[in-house]
Amino acid sequence: MDLYYEITGKGHPIVLIHSGGADLRQWAFLAPLLAEKYMVITFDGRGAGKSPTPKGDVNYVEDLLSLMDYLKLDKATIIGHNIGGQIATDFALVHPERVTKLVLITPSLTGFHWSPESVQNVNNVVHAAPNIDKMIEIFLKTQAYQVVTNSTQRDLAIQMLRHHFQRMLKWPEFKMIWPEPPAIDRIQELEPQTLFIIGQNDLADHFLIADHFRKLPQVKFTELANADHIMMALTHTEELYQVITAFLEE
């Protein structure tokens, strides 16, 4: 196993998948709380944190499967945030027998068409490269970062962003491989009991993504007050812990 991972606690396994622009430090406060009752696995996705640089074809769903196989986890609860939620959703569709329950924190969704505003925000950051300070400045001005920017966890969020951009600018060319058909076209096939968490101040696109999950009877929804899209695990740790553990113990 070439991905960097950490394990804390004992009991039913929970795998946490971090968002884009972050690494396993995103779970620095939530993981210890969960580890009081469960075995918690956090890991750095390929190209993030201490994990290897992506090369060639990269399949994040199969990376998750390889990690679970390596750790001999037949089944686990999967928790994913943002692109981590996208990975978790695709994993649950392709390998439903490996998922006990699914927790999606304001996830992305393969096959979803992003709004012009979201695309422009990403392009603004890309066009600022290789000026990392400018890239971070642009990111922090977006609606997605307003809560964490004004919180005591601002410095940690910036540290993760800086580390991510430093690594990203050195990545060789690679291709992201996702299961076909995309999740948006087969969402009705999702089997596990699912908790969908979204911030009250989240981006409009993510409320549209939530609408796709509202069609499913096994999906429970929770909206966190005064939360935005990014770094919810840092700014709303206790609230997340309460809603997640209540869901897991149902």
Score class of each variant (00 low, 15 high):
residue 8 T to G: 08
residue 15 V to Y: 01
residue 18 H to Q: 14
residue 21 G to F: 01
residue 25 R to G: 02
residue 27 W to T: 01
residue 27 W to L: 03
residue 32 P to Y: 06
residue 33 L to S: 05
residue 34 L to T: 01
residue 37 K to C: 05
residue 37 K to L: 07
residue 43 F to S: 00
residue 43 F to D: 00
residue 45 G to P: 01
residue 47 G to M: 04
residue 54 P to Y: 04
residue 57 D to W: 06
residue 58 V to S: 11
residue 65 L to V: 05
residue 67 L to S: 01
residue 77 T to P: 05
residue 79 I to N: 01
residue 79 I to Q: 02
residue 80 G to C: 07
residue 83 I to Y: 04
residue 85 G to A: 10
residue 90 D to S: 13
residue 96 P to C: 11
residue 101 K to I: 04
residue 102 L to D: 02
residue 110 T to D: 04
residue 113 H to V: 14
residue 117 E to G: 07
residue 125 V to W: 03
residue 130 P to K: 11
residue 131 N to V: 08
residue 132 I to C: 00
residue 133 D to P: 04
residue 138 I to V: 13
residue 140 L to D: 06
residue 145 Y to I: 05
residue 149 T to C: 07
residue 149 T to Y: 12
residue 149 T to H: 11
residue 153 Q to D: 11
residue 154 R to S: 07
residue 156 L to Y: 02
residue 163 H to S: 15
residue 166 Q to V: 05
residue 174 F to H: 15
residue 181 P to R: 12
residue 183 A to T: 11
residue 185 D to P: 07
residue 192 P to S: 10
residue 200 Q to D: 13
residue 209 I to P: 01
residue 212 H to I: 06
residue 221 F to I: 09
residue 227 A to Q: 05
residue 231 M to Y: 13
residue 236 H to I: 05
residue 238 E to L: 13
residue 238 E to T: 14
residue 241 Y to N: 13
residue 243 V to R: 00
residue 245 T to D: 03
residue 246 A to S: 14
residue 246 A to C: 08
residue 247 F to V: 11
